[in-house]
């Protein structure tokens, strides 16, 4: 029932994850694996395009928080782009929006890293 897909891509040398579907207790483990894989490769900046994410549970937010904290530790950042209203609610409701850089689109997130 739970379904989530992750497409890896590299835009302007920045790893971008296009995530679609539901990030819940089950699928968040796959997201964690994908993010940990990139972090272990010593990437500093990651972008997640969440345009097609329809649901984000607290387990999913936990995975994002953990990755953000690891990246910030090495002066990097986890940039989130194109949040749907429900997903945005989760960030604003928990106050997690204060810690993430959130952009309207993946293009703008990339652009912010190039200046």
């Amino acid at each position: 029932m739970s379904k989530m897909e992750i497409i890896h891509s590299l835009i302007e040398d920045i790893p971008v994850l296009f995530v679609s579907g539901k990030i819940d207790a089950v699928t968040s483990k796959d997201l964690e694996t994908a993010l940990t894989g990139l972090i272990d490769k010593n990437k500093k900046f990651l972008v997640i395009d969440m345009e097609k994410v329809e649901f984000l549970s607290s387990s999913g937010l936990r995975v994002l928080m953990a990755s953000l904290s690891k990246l910030k530790h090495r002066d990097g950042d986890l940039l989130l782009a194109a949040l749907q209203p429900f997903v945005k609610d989760v960030f604003f409701l928990t106050g997690a929006n204060r810690f993430f850089s959130i952009y309207p689109s993946q293009g703008e997130a990339i652009k912010s890293l190039q200046t």
Binding site: S58, L61, R62, V63, M65, A66, S67, S69
Partner: peptide
Amino acid sequence: SATSGMFVT
């Protein structure tokens, strides 16, 4: 919690 990402609302 910072590394595990755990939080409590």
